[in-house]
Design a protein around this nucleic acid. Structure first.
Length: 887
RNA sequence: GCCGGGAUGGCGGAACUGGCAGACGCACCAGACUCAAAAUCUGGCGGUGGCAACACCGUGAGGGUUCGAGUCCCUCUCCCGGCACCA
């Protein structure tokens, strides 16, 4: 690991030869000195500080603020921040007033668990970690305006986090409820749905199974915004993969709610279905085992069986949770939890009541089964075994009626054949259709309705979509149902039975009724607790702060404080709003600055936050806007005024020598070591060069030397180059063309965050410029301005010391303009193909006509040889590219 | 199971709306400088055959469309990510 440190970075000038050393050390590139010099200089001059009020052309660049761990900045953070900083710096060179803030997300279980591990108090650890992070961030040369930094653990910050809670509470978007929630025994607290891994384990403790517990908790009504959260994704300019993850998570499904009457009782069972068109095929119903209606309608003699089934379900759930856990321990490795029992092994109990199918008037049996979940839809379904796999499996198991109401579309059946390759047996499309019609096969694909008519409505012969429409209209008219959309998304549980977070600003009167804390009493500071560890009894550590707990209502009545603290994700769900007014004691944010600077122009971060942080942040922004306490500026492309980020880009992940970095593998790249050996500029340049930024890449110790060599060569060329500097017009045309082409390419690549190819283009230009007889100021300035965002210190050194500019590149530099007519050579090389294979290459004037090109091609000796004495059958000319002679 | 993304030299990775595959960099090889090495500079560098000119093969596998396919269409394999008894 430390091997490379002992190697001398190439070309530092400090070679072993005693004679050479003195001379070279003076002139060679010394990143440590250069970077220190400009860092201090910039800080003194306030180069990175933006006057938010005076700025004329605001451009807000945001990156995901870090959790300041004890280990310090990870190369993953550096990678993420560098990409964002390059973007910000480039836009600064394009003349924008760029605001690029940073802060620290120091509250939360992460910090708290670490504190417990090392047996220290989090409040002691945070300042040291923040100081270390600050040092590292400054070292890396990011363009942060440190005057706008925030720390979520500071009462000056969390006062306003509590304020956010109160705004949501007042607007009806926050509520307290007793629900089944996820409880991580290792964390000793409730966690959000989004923090539970697909394996059913805790995000923080991937080997600990999350329990379901019924507890009183605070929730945010994310579901109230499900529709907008989903709808806006379709136009937001975000990375597709991020939007897709959110779409999956929100899970909109469009269908209908249909109410089934219970025979002989004054009760109704509403169901949600995406296939109302199959209503005539609903031959039974299923309720979730814990559906509240079950106890009201079940036949008395079934009660015992129902209770037994419920217990069985509970046991099985428990077993499912624990089974895989033991596997994990015995295997000593994390494996996905064992699958549920095969989906076709359905279980359930008939509850001895019957429902009426509103379309057929038929009485149908009602079951409870664990394949229906209380949390989704209405907790009840109409079962159409002929056209739903799960219902089909259940019906087969219990011998229930299977009534086909759709005739499978033959074309679809044929495609099914195709896509599934050669069938094992003789399941021809005809056979499949026949089986479906006989109720021996389940068909969920397209088709036309059959057996679907009553006296008032007929769906027969209609395709699926039209049938849905017609039946929904009929149901609506009869007041038996209506079109309905449901979402998978559930409300956000924000209560944490922990210490290290902002206390929920709620107090309870003696009857246990919650009251919001008046805003002028904020912040409710965290009491100093020696023992901040969770007790595991479900109550937070704050419950033991006896003095702190006691308070009064505004009218003087005694009251008790809420002991839960708020989820860490709330701290980070509004920080970008606070940045603009980081030190304002009077208000969370200055409305004028918010209108001017928000929504954020570019947000760059990791896709692992696609559903957690990014979804919560959007929710909070929509909710605050809805509550009337937030109004961002008008941006024409933002079709919803409550969306916080105009653009979001998910950067890729960085691996080490092809393997994921992890502490256990000991292959974690620590930026400091590389900065020491190569300089921050070189590390930045290398990180941006090692692969496409949006896809990530592979960090290799050897390769970083290439980046360093490039900077060395640049340094030597700028400071010791002895080419004559002539007016640009006097340079040979190819070099001038290359310069303009490069400027165009860099501009484009920067817009697409395609940093690796931008750097490659700059390297190409430099290779040509260096080989030329002479150079020009335009070439030199273009080179350094294109490269500057990657190597900010080095660029300043060149700008000031080599080019002799009086002012900083970061205030006086302007990204160069290219001229379109200068991006094309007078003469270009085109390929001559014979029958599609390149046989020759010729140089022709750039505007050669098709006829000229044909003649040139036919004149080629290679082509003549291939053609022999035949005439070409055809000639294809692609101007500017190639000529293809077909013989 | 469903939905995304990906597979290109020894390696990281380029390639606009189908148009010269392998830019740029790493590694490697040769040469220059040096007593020597390192650093630096110059040149080479997909595979096979050939002294060479050149020829053939080559973008995960197989098929197709096209004058022409890394790029478009179909099937399959493997890898990464999201969702998953969601009605």
């Amino acid at each position: 690991m430390a091997g490379f440190i002992n190697q001398r970075a190439p070309g530092t000038g400090l070679c072993n030869h005693p004679k050479a050393g003195v001379f070279m050390a003076e002139r060679a590139y010394d990143p440590a000195a250069v970077e220190k010099k400009w860092q201090q200089h910039w800080e003194k001059q306030g180069i990175n500080d933006v006057d938010l009020h005076a700025a004329k052309d605001p451009y807000y660049v945001l990156m995901m603020f870090p959790y300041p761990s004890a280990e310090g900045l990870h190369v993953g953070n550096v990678y993420a921040f560098t990409g964002a900083d390059v973007h910000g710096r480039h836009h600064r060179l394009r003349g924008r007033d760029v605001f690029e803030p940073i802060g620290f997300d120091a509250f939360g279980i992460h910090s708290e668990n670490f504190a417990m591990k090392v047996n220290r108090h989090p409040k002691e650890l945070v300042p040291a970690n923040v100081a270390n992070f600050t040092r590292q961030l400054k070292m890396m040369g990011f363009m942060f305006d440190w005057r706008h930094s925030v720390d979520t653990t500071s009462p000056d910050y969390y006062k306003w986090t509590q304020w956010v809670f109160l705004q949501l509470y007042k607007a009806g978007f926050a509520y307290r409820d007793v629900k089944e929630v996820n409880f991580c025994p290792e964390c000793g607290t409730v966690i959000a749905d989004e923090q539970v891994l697909p394996e059913g384990t805790c995000e923080r403790h991937p080997e600990t199974l999350v329990q379901r517990r019924k507890m009183p908790c605070w929730f945010f009504r994310t579901t109230a915004f499900a529709d907008r959260l989903e709808r806006n994704l379709h136009w937001l300019d975000w990375s597709e993969k991020t939007k897709l993850a959110q779409l999956n998570w929100i899970g909109r499904s469009i269908g209908a709610e249909i109410r089934f009457a219970v025979a002989g009782k004054d009760e109704q069972i509403p169901v949600f279905t995406t296939r109302p068109d199959t209503l005539f095929g609903a031959t039974y119903m299923v309720l979730a085992p814990d559906h509240p209606l079950v106890d009201r309608i079940a036949a008395p003699e079934k009660k015992e069986e129902i209770t037994r089934y419920r217990e069985e379900v509970e046991r099985r759930r428990e077993a499912e949770r624990q089974g895989p856990a033991e596997d994990v321990i015995s295997k000593g490795a994390r494996e996905p939890a064992a699958e549920r029992p095969p989906a076709d092994e359905k279980t359930g109990v008939e509850i001895g009541a019957r429902a009426v199918n509103p379309a057929t008037g038929e009485e149908i049996p009602i079951f409870i089964s664990d394949y229906v979940l209380m949390e989704y839809g209405t907790g009840a379904i109409m079962a159409v075994p002929a056209h739903d796999d799960r219902d089909f499996a259940f019906a087969k198991r219990f011998g229930l009626t299977i009534r086909p109401v759709f005739n499978p579309d033959v074309k679809a059946v044929e495609e099914l054949q195709l896509t599934q390759g050669p069938q094992k047996d003789d399941m021809t499309p005809q056979r499949i259709r026949q089986s479906v019609l006989e109720g021996d096969l389940c068909w969920t694909g397209p088709g036309t309705a059959i057996n679907s008519a009553n006296e008032e409505v007929s769906l027969n012969d209609l395709p699926v979509e039209e049938a849905k429409e017609r039946i929904t209209r009929w149901l609506t008219g009869k007041k038996l149902g209506k079109a309905e959309t449901t979402f998978r998304l559930r409300d956000w549980g924000i209560s944490r039975q922990r210490y290290w977070g902002p206390p929920v600003p709620i107090v309870y009167d003696e009857d246990g009724n919650p009251h919001p804390v008046p805003e002028d009493q904020l912040p409710i500071t965290l009491p100093d607790l020696e023992d901040f560890r969770p007790k595991g009894d479900g109550r937070g550590p704050l419950a033991s702060a006896t003095e702190w707990l006691k308070t009064t209502l505004p009218d003087g009545q005694p009251a008790t404080r809420e002991t839960d603290v708020m989820d860490n994700f709330l701290d980070s769900a509004w920080y970008y709003l606070r940045y603009v007014s980081a030190n304002d004691p009077e208000r969370p944010y200055d409305p004028e600055l918010i209108r001017k600077w928000l929504p954020v122009d570019m947000y760059i971060g990791g896709n692992e936050h696609a559903v957690l942080h990014l979804l919560y942040t959007r929710f909070i922004c929509l909710a605050l806007t809805e509550a009337g306490v937030l109004e961002m500026g008008e941006r024409p492309e933002m079709k919803d005024r409550g969306e916080p980020f105009r653009k979001f880009r998910a950067h890729g992940l960085i691996v080490k020598d092809g393997a994921k970095m992890s502490k256990s593998k000991g292959n974690v790249v620590i930026p400091d070591e590389y900065v020491d050996a190569y300089g921050a500029d070189t590390l930045r340049l290398y990180l941006m060069f090692l692969g496409p930024y949006l896809q990530g890449g592979d960090f290799r110790d050897k390769d970083i030397q290439g980046a360093r060599r490039f900077v060395n060569r640049l340094h030597a060329w700028f400071f010791e180059g002895n080419q004559p500097v002539v007016p640009d017009e006097e340079l040979p045309r190819p070099l001038r063309v290359k310069t303009h082409q490069t400027i165009r390419k860099v501009r484009n690549d920067m817009d697409n965050l395609a940093y690796n190819t931008a750097i490659a283009a700059i390297m190409e230009l430099f290779n040509e410029a260096r080989a030329a007889e002479a150079t020009s100021d335009f070439v030199r300035e273009s080179l350094i301005l294109c490269l500057a965002p990657f190597v900010p210190y080095f660029a300043e050194e060149v700008w000031r010391e080599a080019l002799g500019k009086p002012e900083s590149i970061w205030t006086s530099g302007r990204f160069p303009e290219y001229r379109e007519e200068m991006t094309v050579e007078d003469e270009i090389e085109i390929a001559i193909q014979f029958n599609g294979k390149v046989r020759d290459r010729v140089t022709v004037p750039k505007d050669a006509s098709r006829e000229d090109l044909e003649q040139v091609a036919l004149g080629s000796e290679k082509i003549r040889k291939n053609l022999g004495d035949r005439d070409p059958r055809k000639i294809i000319v692609v101007p500017g590219r190639l000529v293809n002679v077909i013989g």
